[in-house]
């Protein structure tokens, strides 16, 4: 009989696992509640623009894109940390890994499946935002581009959640992933904030070095640029894409290595 580990077989397995993960989400009531909540929240927060002083369009864009970012990031983190844990806890993983399915295929399949779910989620929110904008006569095509960048961030966050959940408990994973998210959104301010106050050259270098090690999710966000109608710098897209591919690759690899020898009790 043919070995289940050839590339084509593994690809088929990843697809099967991903589509099952997608089914799992789209057949749960929570998914629709969350989706409805997201859309309502979005409409509400961006409609606040109506009350604002100044450019209504700018406020809607600002509030709307922030809501889309935060909400989809939180969904990615909190669904991501359960991606592996729930399979173990409910023992459904026994049926899968006792078949000729490699643990890496399993992780990747779960990851791809959740990314498909998050895509639907993000698309719904983006469309809702555009509807609100259109109501105020401010349909903004560039919002779709901004959503594309948000998706890059979701790719990274989900990989982080997956990595932590393949080595630790959901609570620890949640804390670590949220910490990653917070650091990712504040690290870019670190050099500006600290360097002017540091007298020694070494301390300055240390801070800048630290910044380069820490994740920087602001490298991926064009929300502010869209709000203020500033064009992106040349090469921005390429850099964001490479950053995402590299980070996700490293994280999935680390998750796979950590998961390979783990006892499934």
């Amino acid at each position: 009989m043919k070995s289940g580990n050839s590339g084509a077989a593994a690809f088929q397995q990843v697809l099967a696992l991903a589509s099952n993960t997608f089914k799992e989400a789209t057949r749960s009531r929570v998914f629709y509640i969350l989706l409805a909540f997201a859309v309502c929240l979005l409409m509400f927060s961006s409609a606040m623009g109506f009350l604002a002083i100044g450019s209504i369009r700018r406020v809607i864009l600002d509030m709307g894109l922030s809501t889309v970012s935060y909400f989809s990031a939180m969904t990615a983190i909190f669904v991501g940390i359960g991606l592996i844990y729930h399979e173990i806890e409910r023992k459904t993983i026994y049926n899968i890994l006792s078949k000729p399915v490699s643990r890496t295929s399993f992780l990747v399949g779960r990851y791809v499946g959740l990314m498909a779910v998050l895509l639907v989620n993000l698309a719904a929110m983006t469309v809702a935002l555009q509807i609100v904008l259109s109501v105020f006569g401010s349909f903004t095509p560039r919002v779709f581009v901004a959503a594309g960048y948000i998706y890059l961030e979701l790719l990274i966050l989900t990989a982080v959640a997956l990595f932590f959940s393949s080595v630790s408990s959901p609570v620890v994973s949640a804390l670590c992933t949220v910490a990653f998210y917070l650091i990712g959104h504040t690290s870019s301010a670190l050099p500006e904030l600290l360097v002017p106050f540091l007298s020694s050259l070494w301390a300055k270098r240390l801070v800048i070095g630290l910044y380069h090690i820490l994740p920087d999710l602001n490298l991926l966000s064009i929300n502010n640029l869209v709000v203020h109608e500033i064009p992106t710098a040349p090469g921005f897209a390429m850099r964001a894409l490479l950053y995402t591919v590299f980070t996700v690759g490293i994280l999935l690899l680390a998750a796979a290595l950590a998961f390979k020898k783990r006892d499934l009790v």
């Binding site: 580990n5 099967a16 749960s28 026994y94 049926n95 000729p100």
Partner: peptide
């Protein structure tokens, strides 16, 4: 590498399956 698992069948203790799938969908998956 676990390739021998292609030739075994396993029923876990009090098996748990994805309860949102139908019997047919489970077997297909």
């Amino acid at each position: 590498d676990g390739s021998v698992r292609a030739r075994i069948g396993f029923l876990p203790e009090t098996p748990y399956f994805y309860d949102y799938l139908t019997g047919h969908e489970l077997l297909t998956f």
